[in-house]
Design a protein around this nucleic acid. Structure first.
Lengths: 163, 163
DNA sequence: ATCGATAGTTGGTGTTCCCAACGTTGGTGC
DNA sequence: GCACCAACGTTGGGAACACCAACTATCGAT
């Protein structure tokens, strides 16, 4: 076999075309959703990291601030967080003084979780950063497109009609 | 303190309202995207499990079938998969006889990855299940809403104009 | 008093994403 | 020819999430 017989063959994408995902994936909602969620996590994850928390910590603080004290189980159901993960999250938040946790005197199985002043302040800072992250994430979309995307996602997630 | 003093107090959501996420989250794109992606993974994950593969295995088979043989690095760039993860995935696929992997004689750093007959057949079965999963995932949306959602996600992900 | 259901905790698993380091090979400049 | 840097594949590991199983304590109802 002569030297020039094994010249470079360009497999896959053509020379100049920037490498793009398969067309099939580019129109596959489940794949697009995962990619978009990952992009979103890049933005909000950076925002969270600056405050030293993670996704769940933010949502728990948010739920407490918006709707008042709640039990861990309630929080978990509303936020879609597993009981075991919730236990770890509230332990973190309590350790940082962002929430207070005490047994419910009316039902001693439950922990009543309450946001502290420091928790509310942390949430305020977080919320600002998170909003900025949304802005970056949604940069390629126009304002009406953003609201439409949000609407469609909410509709996709809302409980399937169970009559 | 008398007995009836510590009656049950309902923290959080009201009595009959099904427990819903905070309003703030319900209009937060990054949160909605994560929830939607998670729902999607429930559907497609089940589809993949039935064939004994995971997400990346599917996308790799798809890319190979759609665009022909490619190196691992090329695949990784097109699919957004890290080099190290790609090595594991192609090892799995090779072990199952779904792809063939050999050194590129024209560039001996590269592995040329090619889908086998069995790989194409597995992809066909997978693709069918994945399509069914999309159907379930998108059930709450009308046909035009589905295409609009897909369009918006693709627009969100497409490379920001870098002139 | 008993029994089933719920709450919180602990411990563990699987998946995905990401990073660092290493040896090999290719391409470039000298 | 040689030195140097870049790219490739591989190994190992860590972080974040989602999820599950088991256990104790408590509640509610029978």
């Amino acid at each position: 076999m002569k030297r020039w017989d094994r010249q470079r063959i360009r497999y896959g994408s053509s020379v100049d075309a920037p490498e793009q995902p398969p067309q099939r994936l580019r129109q596959l909602p489940s794949w697009l959703l995962n990619r978009a969620a990952n992009a979103a996590n890049g933005h909000v994850g950076a925002a969270f990291a600056q405050e030293g928390v993670r996704k769940h910590h933010f949502t728990v603080l948010l739920a407490l601030t918006e709707s008042g004290p709640a039990s861990q189980a309630d929080l978990g159901r509303r936020l879609g967080i597993d009981r075991s993960d919730m236990a770890a999250v509230v332990a973190d938040l309590e350790g940082d003084g962002l929430i207070a946790r005490e047994r419910d005197p009316g039902d001693r199985r439950r922990n009543v979780v309450t946001a502290t002043e420091a928790g509310a302040a942390a949430l305020a800072r977080l919320d600002e950063r998170v909003s900025a992250a949304q802005e970056q994430l949604l940069a390629p979309l126009s304002a009406p497109e953003r609201t439409e995307l949000t609407r469609l996602l909410r509709r996709l997630l809302d409980p399937p009609p169970t009559p």
